[in-house]
Structures are given as C-alpha cells and as structure tokens.
Design a protein around this nucleic acid. Structure first.
Lengths: 340, 340
DNA sequence: TTGAAAGCGTTACCAA
DNA sequence: TTGGTAACGCTTTCAA
C-alpha cells in the first residue's frame, strides 16, 4: 500500500481511506489512488485488515454435511446471496460432530470471518457464544428456547402438517411417517429438534383430518439418509403393515423409501403415495417425480444474510434475538398422483 | 499471548515457540505454557499469524458449483481428507463464472489460505499463477498442456471407454452419447476439456468394439444439468432415432436422460440401457439404479491433498508439476441390466 | 482534507 | 534454551 500511496502522491493513510471509499477524500484524490492501485495490481491484505480492524468482508457458513443435497443446495444459496451483497462466503462442514462444530467455529469461522451463519447440532447456545468471539452469528433451525442469537427456521410444523393433509387429500387412508418415532401430541410441547417439530406438524395434520394413528405408523431414523430409509421401509413392508401413504421427513429419506418400496414390489403412487420434505433439485427428475414440501431456500438465504448484515451495523438498543421462518410451497408431483 | 506468557512465567517468544511445539523448548516449559493457555482459554489469532508468518493451517477448496451432487460430494471428501491431516478446509463456489473464479482466488483463497485446491473453468493457468500469490495450488482437471501446477485428473478417457465397452457388453447395438457433439477421433488430439476427454474415451470404446457411429449419435449439452438432458433426450427420441444404449457424460445428465426416456414411454434398461459417469451417492437409490463410472473421490481427495502438502514442505529442486489421475470403478446396476 | 504515528497479535531473528 | 525486539500491512486517532 505504501507503493500505491507513493505513486498516487499521497500518504498511506489517505490511500487507505480512498480505497475504501471514505467520503472524506475528495473524488479527484480517490481517483488517483484507485488508478495507482490498479496499475500496481494491488490487493488489500485481508489478514492485516482483519488484524487491525476486525473486519474483512468474509462471511462464514458452517453446515453439517456438504455431501448431502439439501445442505449443499442451501449453502450454495447462502453463498450466492452473500455475493449479491458484495461480500464473500466461505463454507465449512462440521461433519455433524461436536468436535467438528467446535473446530470450525473456534479455529476458522470466528477468526477469519466477520460473522457466521451456523447450523448447530451438537453444541449448546452458550458454547456457541463462547466460541463466537462476540461476532455476529445467525443460527439455522436452533429450536432451543434461549434467545441469544438471531435464528432462521425451516417451516417444520406448517410444512409437515401440509404434507399430511395433502396425502389425505389425494385419498390416502392409512399413512405412515418416516423419520421420527411417535409421541402423543399433548406430550410433545415445543420440541427442540427438527425431527420433533416435523413430528408435531404431522400429528397436527392427522388431528385436523380426523385420521387415527398408532405408534407403529411412525418409524424412527437416526440418520436421515438413503440407505437407512430403504432398510426401514423393507422392515415396514415385511411387518405386514398395510399403508397407502408415506410422509418422509426429508427428501433423502423419501428417495431411499421409494427405492425400498420398489424393492418390495410396491408401486408409487398407486400402492403407496410418497411425500418428501426439503425440495431439492433432484425431486423433479426422479421416477416417479417426488411430491414435497419445498422450502424456499432463496428466502431462507435472504433472511439469514439480512439478519447478519443488520448486526454488522451495530445498534445502541439492547440485543433482542430475531426469529424468522422461511417460506415453503407444497409441490405435488407424480409420487402423490393417486388414481382415486 | 502476553497473558499466557506471564502466567507461565516465560517471555512471549517462548510462549509462541512452545505453543507450536518447537523442539527447542524443553518439555517442562512447554507443558507450563500449554497449561496456562488452556486455563486462560487462549486461541491463536489466525490473522496475526497469517500476517506475520504467511501460514495459518487453512486450505481452500474452490469448486464451480456447490449445489450439484458431484462437486459437493467431492468438496466434502477433500474437506475430510484435509481434516484428517490436522488442517482446516474452507470451500467456496466460483459459480462457474470468470468473475467468480477471480474473486474467490484473489479476495479469499490466496489471502486466507496456505494453499488451494482449485477446479478452474474460465481462467488460464497464467492468470491463476498471478492470482495465487505464489502459494501452493493444486488444480483439478486442468487439461491445458502448461505444466505450471500440480494437477489431479478424473479418469475421463479410461472411464468413458469402459462405459461404452460395458454398454456393448450388455448387448447394445446402437449407442448414443449425451454431453458433447461428435468430432472424429483422429481430429481430436489431446482435448483440453473434460467433455473432450470423455468424448475421446467414448470414441476409443467404439473403435475397440468395432461399432460404427455417426455424427447424429452425439448430443451436445452446454450445461451438464438435469433439465437440459431431459430436453435433449426428448428431441433425440422425437427425431425418430432408434437406439438401445445411452452413455451420459455425468450422472446428472443420466438422471435427466432417464427421466426424459420415461417421459417418452421408453423403459430403462429394456428399451434403452443407460450409463452415467461420476458415481454420486444417489445413483444406487434411483429407479432404476444407475450404472456408472464411479470416480474414487477418496482417492482423488487423497492425491490432491498430498500434492498440496508436499509443496508446503518446500524443496530446493526445480519445480516440476506432478500429474496424477484418480482411480475409478465401473459399477453395473439396473440401468444396464438388459435381458439379452 | 490530509499526514504522522501508534498499534492490532504474532513470529523470527539475533543475542544472551 | 530462552528473551528482547523488530517487523508483517493495515486502520484509525489525533493534529495540522
């Protein structure tokens, strides 16, 4: 930067101001500095800036798994939204483990980034605060009732409820649910997990439609991935249970489930209608195409980034955590196109 | 760090050495320092370290799209491999645009990272060098013939050839190729793109099996995504072309293509056997499950990370770029299970 | 509106 | 083996 200042014929301080567009520098001077910087191929050293000012224009996105469709598509949407605001995003995977989450926050995100959008799984809000180094943080789907951080939610309850009502609507008489085991609605309270929230929404759907359910209609999946879903569906079918509708708590589960149903010689949707949740790009191209609760990830990204940027501005008012919920759409496709 | 040094009763310099495990510090002193650091909850400031030493233990991964299955699964594999080596990885998407690639390299990766694993698309090797700030860089699938950087390749030619031979092997008599338009093998030389390499491999497969091909058997896809593949297959079928095998240059293309065939009332594999390329996790759960050239992304990740770490060690010998190719396996599934 | 100078938290050289 | 100290490149306060 010293060179740039010299070429432009100003001091280093003036060069610094000019390059960041400080209004105190007259346009003419600023122009000279920018030109000098360009000809010298100068780029600001982010480490130095970060060290001195604590800011570098980089936002961190910490997500559980990068190799699954939904989280990766969400990270991509957030990255794009960050770029749209003229900033850069870096994404990291926590691998769904406590050490992973701690390492990412402590060693990278809170150090190299001005703020973080974080999807927590294994660490408490208090731990997050300790690791955040007092930098702005927006959480994704943190249903704990502490109000320490701004949070954006997936529309778990409303979405799950809509899914059940849709299955009922297309004529299903006996619906199973894949992703969480049963607990009675009145015992559920305000669940603190995504799986709990989706269960609650589903139960509300059953209640509203007047459809009776039993404990056995709900199948727990500790991992929300293809292979376990496939296995669980095999078990469900082999148990002799007869059902004509299946709500899967994520699209991944639905992919595995459909495959499991096909393995057992059942047709989708004629024998069993299947409903997913997420709205990943693959849904439309499956055979059959997958009906789903499509979370508006652009809206989610927009809300998360906006909350974060608002915190950058700082405010004198006492901190009040904001809670926003992303929009969703029910998308009906072949997997629930039942002949009635 | 000053506090840590004070508590441990040593100088800041000694504390710095001790924390990084410098062998000059006696174990006893080092122990005291580490203990002091722990009780004080001290974490090294990466910006400061980076500013002073140019190193911070973070590796950048710059990939074209984060919302597509193959690149996201590859990024995840590289991240895990980096973690396994005790370092952190940050991943960024370039959105397949020149500005994106430049911004990522210039504003983040070359600044915040000790080295980068980069999948280039729109920038030349020389530009990359200029943007890399002389830090180690490993490229992915950069087929340009300059030998400036270490590179890891996808086994494009060998894989594509194997794919064609497999289709022939299961009894296909007329195979189409989706992903690139035709050019005669002898005019092809050493193609500088992934699409070109896969075309070359396919042509070699046709040559070896003695199967004749015409220009119309090859369909260009400028974007390798679901929707275009689906459209192109619609066109192909509507053109009245009769074919019983289809090699798609990526799994994404294959997903769209299968869907397109189903739309047209064709059965996979009975009417048309379909072969993909990549080996994403979803393949196994499709209906029908997708046969594919499965790139060993763990091997790819291992090779890329190893090359990068080797450059960190520095060497007095003149720079010679290393070129490695990842392993692959042909995985035969339902989509090529023809009744013969 | 601009310039001088202090300092952000480390590391690495040199001396002890 | 350890300690003192000068950078690293930038931002920001204060003074001019």
């Amino acid at each position: 930067m010293g060179d740039v200042a010299k070429v432009a014929g100003v001091s280093r301080a003036t060069a610094s101001y000019a390059l960041r567009g400080d209004p105190r520098i007259v346009p003419e001077t600023a122009g000279k500095v920018r030109k000098a910087a360009r000809t010298l191929g100068y780029t600001t050293n982010l480490s130095a800036r970060s060290l001195r000012s604590g800011r570098n224009g980089v936002i961190g996105v910490a997500i559980f798994e990068l190799d699954k469709a939904y989280p990766s598509q969400m990270s991509a949407a957030i990255s794009k939204e960050v770029n749209r605001k003229g900033l850069q995003a870096i994404v990291q995977q926590t691998s769904n483990s406590q050490e992973g989450e701690i390492a990412v926050l402590k060693e990278v995100t809170s150090q190299l980034c001005d703020g973080t959008i974080f999807s927590p799984g294994q660490v408490s809000d208090e731990e997050i605060r300790a690791l955040s180094d007092n930098k702005p943080m927006v959480l994704l789907d943190d249903f704990s009732d502490e109000a320490i951080f701004d949070t954006v939610f997936t529309p778990c309850e409303a979405g799950a409820k809509a899914a059940i009502l849709h299955l009922v609507d297309v004529g299903c008489r006996h619906i199973c649910v894949l992703g969480n085991s049963y607990r009675p609605l009145r015992a559920l309270g305000e669940p603190t997990t995504v799986a709990g929230r989706r269960l609650k929404g589903a139960l509300e759907g059953f209640a509203e439609s007047g459809m009776a359910v039993t404990e056995d209609d709900f199948v727990q999946c500790d991992q929300w991935d293809f292979s376990l879903a496939r296995q669980q569906v095999h078990c469900l079918v082999e148990s002799g249970r007869s059902f004509d509708g299946l709500f899967c708590m994520t699209d991944s589960l639905a992919f595995g489930a459909i495959r499991g149903l096909v393995d057992c010689g059942l047709r989708v949707p004629d024998d069993v209608a299947v409903m997913g949740f997420d709205g990943v790009a693959e849904d439309e191209y499956m055979t059959p195409s997958l009906s789903t609760i499509s979370v508006d990830i652009e809206d989610l990204a927009h809300k998360a980034v906006s909350l974060l940027l608002k915190r950058f501005e700082g405010s004198d008012e006492p901190f009040v955590a904001e809670k926003l919920t992303a929009k969703f759409k029910l998308v009906a496709r072949e997997s629930t196109a039942k002949r009635r």
